[in-house]
Design a protein around this nucleic acid. Structure first.
Length: 257
DNA sequence: ATGACTGGTGTGACCAGA
């Protein structure tokens, strides 16, 4: 089974790229982030015609997450528990074929730091820690999937020294990611490639993709039940080179189930 | 050090992204 994540940066503006990639990569499940579309503007017909069911949580203008699946998915929830006043669409959970729990998340960017946006990011992280701890009590495979907006280590940044004060790389954020992983999660791509430089995002500015000036911020965290089922994974880097593309590339893993 | 792109909104330059 192939599970993928893709920050599309606008699901409608990106529809032709998304459909082309779905056709080529044939993932079984896809977690999408940054739909940038309200709930009623999700392109459901085109997604259905491509052979996928979908559950999504839209929002006007910004954010928005979705999970696409060739097979049956059931909604568990569409919000990250812990703050009823948080109305940003950044989180959802589904159950796939009654045997795999998938959380699709879009962690806040947090810039500029310090400031209220950075505080929101750290608060969101705390709530994710709490929810992840609950998910670890489930005796079934669980995956936390999406755009974490965190480069976990220096290996995940083209020039670490330029990012030390950035909300995606500040010590508080790297520590929050490490604390989450230390609950008992496995960073699947890093598990498969312990020492390789792997990026999932390249800025639109400064020919970042051409220079391979990238970041690794899209991740799969696997619980201990799912970890032994991990077979392979990678980044569909070429998609970042397509016309009208997102600034992220799709990332995927193969799981034995 | 700075700015450069891009999508969405809405029809002006903004906001936000990372």
């Amino acid at each position: 089974m192939k599970l993928a994540t893709y920050n599309v940066n606008g699901v409608n503006g990106r529809l032709s790229v998304l459909l082309r990639w779905l056709e080529e990569a044939k993932p079984d499940i896809v977690c999408l982030q940054e739909l940038k579309a309200p709930q009623d503007k999700f392109p459901l017909k085109a997604i259905n015609d491509a052979g996928y069911n979908a559950i999504w949580h839209g929002q006007k203008q910004w954010n928005g997450v979705a999970i696409l699946s060739k097979e049956e998915i059931k909604e568990i929830g569409k919000t990250l528990p812990g703050d009823d006043k948080d109305l940003q669409s950044r989180y959802m959970e589904v159950l796939w074929k009654d045997k795999l729990v998938i959380a699709c998340l879009y962690l806040p960017n947090g810039n500029p730091a310090p400031g209220p946006k950075f505080d929101y990011k750290l608060e969101w992280f705390k709530r994710l820690h709490q929810r992840a701890k609950v998910l670890l009590t489930f005796n079934v495979p669980v995956a936390l999937v999406g755009d974490f907006n965190v480069m976990p280590t220096e290996l995940d940044v083209y020039k670490p020294e330029r990012w030390v004060d950035d909300a995606l790389f500040r010590p508080e954020v790297r520590n929050a990611f490490k604390k989450l992983v230390n609950q008992g999660w496995t960073d699947a791509i890093r598990e498969l490639y312990p020492n390789e430089i792997i990026y999932t995002f390249w800025d639109y500015f400064r020919n970042a993709y051409g220079r391979n000036a990238g970041l690794r911020i899209d991740h799969f965290l696997l619980n201990p039940v799912l970890k032994p089922k991990l077979l392979s994974g990678g980044v569909d880097k070429k998609v970042r080179g397509w016309e009208k593309t997102s600034d992220h590339a799709p990332v995927w893993i193969e799981i034995a189930m």
